[in-house]
């Protein structure tokens, strides 16, 4: 039986917007097995990003339980949450979010728990940017920046990669490159990946597509 990496148990996330109460997540139940490659689709405001934030321990559920590798994340202190994120979770953002004052190599090494950069060099080769290791992010194309972002997410061998619209800022050709890279990491390295996307082409690369609507998985 496959090991469960992430487990949402009746998770609710409620916001107050003025007088209105918004259920960004309305009783989500979701299980991600180790080595799975899953995408979430749905209109804006359906709760995809909130699910990634809660799943990535960036935000706490209003109600319900979130287990990561069997551990209840709500019981962790802020400091332990940060350490847990660093070790167990890799984030890939729509807008790459690389630090412009750092080189490609430094960006990849930024969250590294190991001062040796062997792993970073290996990843640079994997994303085919070994010749641009000392370039700054603003000297790279969008597709290249997103590849660096993926390498940064992988530096500590996390249990899970969470990607919020990873192809949202890219043209079709670059979107395919990124999705092929994620697919390769999933198939050959067994990395567990959950992405939120509007892009059917991106979703087609994944093994399982979830539909979200009004904070619920359909």
């Amino acid at each position: 039986m496959n090991k469960t990496v992430l487990n949402f148990q009746n998770v609710w996330k409620t916001y107050r917007m003025g007088d209105e109460i918004v259920n960004a997540l309305a009783g989500v139940n979701l299980t991600l097995e180790k080595g799975s490659f899953t995408s979430m689709m749905g209109p804006s405001g359906s709760g995809k990003s909130t699910l990634l934030h809660v799943g990535g321990i960036l935000d706490m559920p209003t109600q319900g339980t979130l287990l990561m590798n069997g551990k209840d994340t709500s019981k962790l202190s802020r400091k332990k949450q940060a350490k847990f994120r660093r070790k167990e979770i890799g984030f890939v953002f729509q807008r790459f979010n690389l630090l412009n004052q750092l080189t490609v190599m430094e960006n990849i090494m930024l969250p590294s728990l190991d001062s040796e950069n062997n792993k970073a060099e290996e990843l640079l080769e994997r994303i085919r940017l070994e010749k641009k290791h000392d370039k700054k992010p603003n000297q790279l194309s969008g597709g290249e920046q997103q590849r660096v972002c993926i390498a940064r997410a992988l530096i500590n061998n996390p249990s899970l990669i969470l990607a919020d619209e990873p192809t949202g800022e890219l043209d079709t050709r670059n979107a395919e490159v990124i999705m092929n890279l994620l697919k390769d990491l999933n198939e050959n390295d067994g990395v567990t990946i959950l992405i939120a996307t509007h892009n059917q082409l991106a979703a087609d690369f994944t093994d399982k597509i979830l539909e979200m609507q009004d904070g619920k998985i359909q």
């Binding site: 990535g56 960036l58 802020r78 660093r86 979010n97 930024l110 969250p111």
Partner: peptide, 15 residues
């Protein structure tokens, strides 16, 4: 602000 958000997301502690 956004950069600090990124740092926290990738595991930097408050301290």
């Amino acid at each position: 602000t956004r950069e600090i958000g990124v740092l926290k997301a990738i595991g930097f502690t408050d301290r």
